[in-house]
Amino acid sequence: MSLLEFTNLSVEFETLNGGFRAVDNVSLTVDPGEVVAIVGESGSGKSVSMLAVMGLLPWTAKVTADRLTFQGRDMLSMRPKEKRKIIGKDISMIFQEPTTSLNPCFTVGYQIIETLKKHTDLSRAERKNRAIELLRLVGIPAPERRVTAFPHQLSGGMNQRVMIAMAIACDPKLLIADEPTTALDVTIQAQILELLIKIKEENDMGLVLITHDMGVVAETADRVIVQYAGQQVEQQDVKGLFRDPHHPYTAALLAALPERATGDQLPSIPGVVPGQFDRPAGCLFSPRCSFVFDRCHKEQPTQAGKELGCALCHTPLVAGKPQNEAA
């Protein structure tokens, strides 16, 4: 049984200017011990889709899905109270900005212990010891001292380690890491990723890694989901994706990859992800696609088969060449 499974998850925000679909029919499965990467530029709905799974979106968000299960249990019909027994224990999440994600008014120790108190039967002394042990586990030096530190007394990298310690406190089955290294120095980034992978291996944990960095994907992921403007445009295992991307957007992301060597972090595809007000008709990627043709402006593409990475494109690429162009 897969750990997390959802099909056709959509999130629509109620805004002053009407509804805005930030996530549109996204599907995903994660198995124990598997690393699934979700990639896409900023604004693709990566965070929103995972926050929807966690139930952490504001009330303006309407979440729908055909199916959303965790370990076979239906999360859609689950009562909030039941859900809170899973959230933070069996599924946990870490965020992009470690420093603002920790409460400035409480010591890091307190914030870890709080999770333990909520989800375990450990005694007061045991919780404290476990917190120190967790800090040691995530590579924080002198954890006995750091346990009483406030977040502002630690560096960003250290705070992210604290976040990880907090997230793995109750041995979760699934960890969702939302751009866990984006806010950190390059040298620290690698360390944090290594730590996440190590924890995953040791606990046979499922890991959903949200990132916009193809380099990170190549190093860590088993499977990759590419998201664009809220839609899932491609899904493949990592080898296949790098060898033969089927969606023009994936191809463009990969083509932009070598430029990272010049120090430019973002894949340089001209243009930006369309937001609420500039969504084109037809294919959402059409304004930026180098394979665009007439039909793309009129008709929304449908998902191709598994052999073509479920590419959301009228003419999925094979070996860099558009297919069924005749159509």
Binding site: L56, R84, K89, F95, S101
Partner: peptide, 14 residues
């Protein structure tokens, strides 16, 4: 609206 409030909710706190 702060991130740490979201974190608190992500812990499953009431």
């Amino acid at each position: 609206d702060e991130d740490y409030v979201r974190t608190a909710r992500a812990k499953g706190l009431a």
